[in-house]
Amino acid sequence: MLDILKAPVETFQDFVVLSGRAIGNAFRSPHYFDDIVLQSDAIGVGSLLIVLFIGLFSGLVMGLQLSRTLATYGATAEMGQLVSVVLVRELGPVLVALLVAGRNASGIASELGSMKVTEQIDAMRALGTDPTQKLVTPRLIAMAVTLPLLTILADFIGLIGGYLIGRYRFGLPFSQYWTSAWQILQYNDVVQGLVKPFAFAVIISLVGCFYGIRTSGGTEGVGRSTTKAVVVSSIWIFVVDFFLGEIFVNLT
């Protein structure tokens, strides 16, 4: 029994050690600003279009699905509120995080994994650079900055999607939709909508780096690490989403 638990516990321990070092490095020099900019570009700008696309369609779909129920109760005027609350609290952060996990946790894991199997990470250490400082920390910082920004954008575009449905199905006036969408949001919702993507960013970047750096067994190993990075980070996104939701629900 203990033997079965040993491997995952050790893996988790290694993960905690790497995370601690990576986060500590963010407050320690040397800082590799070039790498931070490069990674922000890869994650933020690279994911921009697809995030906007996903945001728009989740807003459209939500508007569509809600419209029937709301019409039943004659409450179509409340559409702005509903779309806004669901997007900002929940759907925006999770959808964007899952998308970026699929796109970038795998990208990070395969890039670092190839560096590992071609001994570039060993070379880094041999030539006097700490790979955590040079590879992990810039990705962590870049992700922590860009993922909340992407989420805000997706939320906003999603609201526009909801508005389009309201406008063309029910002739909902512009000001009615947007005022109710804006006024329903409380401080708690906005904080929740930003804390979540920040936490997901930490998960995606660290899990991606962790499996990348642990890669062994040649090119085949790179494929395995990539898959693991996506699966594990997606699972953690849902788990952490639940617990953060729990905390914020109790705060109101």
Binding site: T118, Q120, A123, A126
Partner: peptide, 16 residues
């Protein structure tokens, strides 16, 4: 210490 050592890696280890 490593600053006083030179290494050629089997897989090259050149930064892509």
């Amino acid at each position: 210490i490593r600053a006083k050592m030179g290494i050629l890696f089997q897989e090259g280890g050149l930064f892509d």
